[in-house]
Design a protein around this nucleic acid. Sequence first.
DNA 1: GGCCGCGACCCACTTTCAAT
DNA 2: ATTGAAAGTGGGTCGCGGCC
Length: 446
Amino acid sequence: MTARRLFGSLRQRESGRWQIRYRTKDGGRVAWPETYARRADAARVLAELERQAQVGGKWLDGSKVLFGTYAEEWLLDNPRLRPRTADVYRSLYRRHLAPRLAGVPLGQLDTAVVRQWRSAALKGGTSSTMVAKAYRLLRAILNSAMTEDELITVNPCRIRGAGEERSPERPVLSLEQLEALAGLVPDRWRAFVLLKTFASLRWGEITALTRADLDLEQRTVRVRRQFLQVPGGLQVGPPKSRAGLRTVSFPAAILPELRRHLDAYSSPGADGLIFPTEHGQPWRRSNFNTAARWREACAEVGVPQLHLHDLRHTGNTFAAQSGASLRDLMARMGHDSPAAALIYQHSSQVADRAIAEALDRRVETHRRRVQDRSQRSDSPKADAALGPVGGPRRREDTDLGPKKDLETALTRADGLERTTGIEPAYSAWEADVLPLNYVRRPPVRA
DNA sequence: GGCCGCGACCCACTTTCAAT
DNA sequence: ATTGAAAGTGGGTCGCGGCC
């Protein structure tokens, strides 16, 4: 959070004296041969060195160049930026910087103006994340104006912490709200909501699950691929990272819903999608909100601003409350660091089962309480408010058929792309990744 | 001067939203 | 239902500055 110093720095040596270090134009670091007893003296010399480093000491007087003129040139002609970054920057500039700052001459763009711009943006409803991104872009552009083009002498972006992103807290459901929500979405989505929460799955991961990935006996779901939305449709690809390839345990309490769902909605066969559309196709994310009556359901449980993705964090919160360590949680979520993923793979599987069992106890306790409550009161309203939490819950419901030959099932499932009409996107990835678990990212798509 | 931790920066990607 | 833009997420890289 310390502002990046552009030219040089001071440091006090063990002797107590101050040393000056600075950068040359070609990026080398130079230590000034003299040291100074007082910091202020060293700072003065550093300032003088910086002044001399400017071409002929050519300071421009509070330039009349407009910020907009300079910024647009900077954005258009900046070979250091990758294309995608340049796109993002242009969009940030157009939406957040240009409207208020384009007409301001660089010489008048001082810290007060930057501060005003920033607070206006925040007041105007722009998220703190986006304001921070825009602020960093502003700072980068003005750095160029200062160091490369020498149009200004100081960078006015000096607001502490303004460039940091702190994503706002996302809402998390209580167990009661989750059960209610699962009861309010259409029946086709009920198991989806429960599994997505309790296994902390991403959208692309859960929509790509096949029957072969679900082991009802072990109560695990295996994440080994995901759908990616690309221009022209959906493609199947590897999980986001090596840690994304994982097996997650889920509580037995949701087994009845899962089994009912498999019978009623899932495509047939080991390679059948667990959560297909009515036509047996994978869902597109953009159709979810309508199809699952998501907003209405969320509003009814009192969390109208809930995003689907928040279910993942809800599940993680439940798991955390069950006593899981951070490392176990990250493995469960599928975003451990690559190095750690391998090291902790084994221990996390043991811990993960413990998490699922702890979750189970919580769900069962909750459901028993709700059932007792609804048995005591005859009010159907009370039931509706909490949603149909029970369903068939007899012990026999968790009994399983003949043990699945997992290896055979997985082998068959690997041919999924050909049977579901999805383009076989990454043949190289499939050949390399599936036998070895995870090797590398898929080829970059145009 | 070398090493190293932290944070800023950059980037690719996912998810959400809104226009069509 | 589809599409593209905007918003949000996670992680790699590298520079700054502290320490030796």
